[in-house]
Amino acid sequence: AIERGSKVKILRKESYWYGDVGTVASIDKSGIIYPVIVRFNKVNYNGFSGSAGGLNTNNFAEHELEVV
């Protein structure tokens, strides 16, 4: 089962992080479509409006993740 702290591989082909491994930061139990927040070591794009980097978290559905 996917739980907080799990290392997961991203299976969503259109994702910037496809094939990468991230760490589960949290799981939303409220029934939303993409409840699993995954944190990565790298950012997906340069930040804007003065922020240092881009996003390094993204929401995924459990079926888009594979525990490694």
Rank of each mutant, 00 (worst) to 15 (best):
L65R: 01
S26P: 00
N46F: 09
N44P: 10
I10S: 02
K13I: 13
H63R: 06
A61L: 05
G31N: 15
Y45T: 15
S26F: 13
G19F: 07
Y45Q: 15
Y45H: 15
V43R: 07
S26Q: 09
G54H: 07
V67H: 04
P35W: 15
E14R: 08
Y45I: 15
I32N: 10
L55H: 09
G54W: 10
Y18L: 02
V67C: 04
S15M: 02
N58A: 15
L55Y: 12
L11I: 04
V36Q: 00
R39L: 10
N41K: 14
A25D: 13
A61K: 06
T57L: 07
S51P: 12
K7T: 08
V68A: 04
N46P: 15
E66G: 03
A25V: 15
G22I: 08
N59Y: 10
V21L: 07
E14A: 10
I33F: 11
K13L: 12
V38N: 00
V43M: 10
K7F: 12
E62A: 12
D28G: 05
S26R: 11
L55I: 14
I33V: 11
Y16E: 07
G19D: 06
I27P: 01
E62Q: 09
K9Y: 04
H63E: 10
E66I: 08
R39W: 13
S49G: 11
G50L: 06
K9L: 10
G47H: 07
A25E: 14
K7Y: 13
E3M: 15
N59G: 10
V24N: 00
V38W: 00
I2K: 01
K29S: 11
I32C: 14
N58P: 03
G31Q: 13
K42N: 09
N46D: 15
V67T: 05
V21K: 01
F60G: 00
T57N: 06
Y34D: 06
A1R: 13
K29T: 13
Y18N: 02
W17A: 02
T57K: 06
N41M: 12
K42T: 09
A25T: 13
N46A: 06
A1F: 10
A61N: 05
L11V: 03
A61P: 02
E64L: 02
S49P: 10
I2H: 03
E66Q: 11
F48G: 14
V38H: 00
K9G: 02
W17H: 05
G22L: 05
R39M: 13
N41W: 12
S51W: 07
V38M: 01
L65M: 03
S6W: 13
G31I: 08
L11F: 02
D28N: 07
A61G: 07
F48H: 11
L55S: 14
A52G: 12
N58V: 10
T23D: 03
A61T: 03
N56I: 09
G54A: 09
N44E: 12
A52P: 11
Y18E: 02
N46S: 08
E14M: 08
T57D: 07
L65Y: 01
V67R: 05
N44W: 15
E3F: 13
R4T: 11
P35L: 14
G5A: 02
R39Y: 11
G22A: 03
L11N: 02
R4E: 11
N59E: 07
V68K: 03
I2L: 10
V68D: 03
E3L: 13
Y34L: 09
G54P: 09
I10A: 02
F48D: 15
Y34T: 05
D28R: 06
L55R: 08
G53F: 07
I37K: 13
E64Q: 02
N56H: 08
F40Q: 00
N56P: 06
K42W: 09
G5H: 04
V24P: 00
Y16F: 14
S26Y: 12
T23F: 09
N46G: 09
V43Y: 15
D20K: 13
L11Q: 03
E62R: 10
I10R: 03
D20V: 13
N56F: 12
E66A: 07
V36G: 00
G47I: 05
H63P: 04
K42D: 09
R39P: 00
I33W: 07
R4Y: 10
I10T: 02
N46Q: 12
H63Q: 06
V8T: 02
E14Y: 07
W17F: 06
N59K: 08
K42S: 08
P35M: 15
D20R: 14
W17M: 03
A1T: 12
G54F: 10
N46L: 10
R4I: 14
N56G: 05
K9S: 03
G31D: 14
K13T: 09
N44L: 14
N59W: 10
N59Q: 07
S6I: 09
R12K: 05
I10W: 02
A61E: 05
V68T: 05
Y18S: 03
P35N: 14
G5L: 03
K29R: 12
I2D: 01
